[in-house]
């Protein structure tokens, strides 16, 4: 019984690896079904996650922890959107859809836009010529930032070509090397999980 999850992991993982090499239509169909199962599991886990979210914030409200008012907002929003979604659905014109377009759309765009400010402050702090590597990073970053925008061509005609070379040669070489390492690391980690060598995801050493 204790080995049940390990066996499920092994057979599921091994099957999906095998399906990669088997083009038979039945195998591909089974693969598609298994991927759909993953979506179903996710849907149930979402319920579990929502319960955890509710519990955490309810505890903050009942114990009047600092910032508990924000937890009231969170709980109200969770209850409202869940109820509205269940009763009305999420199609165009429903409350959920309208709130999504009015609030979420703009909040998400704003948060993403804040990255521009963070990049500027991070660049100011991090791009300091403290040693050889940092200086190389600094010079490359300056060339890239100028070369990738219209103003680069105004300053020097060769900027776009230099930028393209930097992207095509040293950048691509380093990316490929890192990608090979990551790919092999991913295979190793996945095999450890499938073969049961690493069981920490089950809460066991």
């Amino acid at each position: 019984m204790r080995n049940g999850p390990l066996l499920v992991t092994f057979f599921t993982g091994a099957l999906l690896v095998a399906f990669f090499f088997i083009p038979h239509h039945s195998a591909q169909k089974m693969q598609s079904v298994m991927l759909d199962w993953a979506n179903v599991v996710y849907a149930f886990a979402l319920i579990l996650g929502s319960i955890t979210l509710w519990t955490v914030h309810q505890r903050k409200v009942t114990s009047r922890a600092p910032g508990w008012a924000f937890s009231v907002v969170t709980l109200s929003a969770l209850a409202f959107m869940t109820g509205a979604g269940v009763l009305q659905g999420v199609e165009e014109g429903t409350l959920v859809n309208r709130f999504y377009n009015i609030a979420n759309y703009h909040l998400v765009s704003t948060m993403f836009a804040l990255l521009a400010f963070f990049i500027a402050s991070a660049a100011f702090r991090a791009f300091r010529a403290r040693n050889v590597e940092a200086t190389l990073l600094l010079v490359t970053a300056i060339v890239m930032m100028i070369g990738r925008v219209s103003i680069g061509e105004y300053i020097w005609q060769g900027f776009p070509a230099l930028t393209e070379w930097l992207l095509d040669v040293p950048n691509l070489a380093a990316k490929r090397a890192i990608a090979i390492g990551i790919g092999l690391g991913a295979v190793s980690t996945a095999l450890k999980i499938i073969l049961g060598i690493d069981r920490s995801y089950l809460g066991r050493s």
């Binding site: 500027a120 660049a123 100011f124 791009f127 010529a129 300056i142 930032m145 925008v149 219209s150 103003i151």
Partner: peptide, 16 residues
């Protein structure tokens, strides 16, 4: 985007 990139470059140079 061009102006912001130039600004960041200026800030980096000033910092250095």
């Amino acid at each position: 985007q061009s102006v912001v990139h130039v600004l960041i470059v200026i800030l980096v140079i000033v910092g250095n």
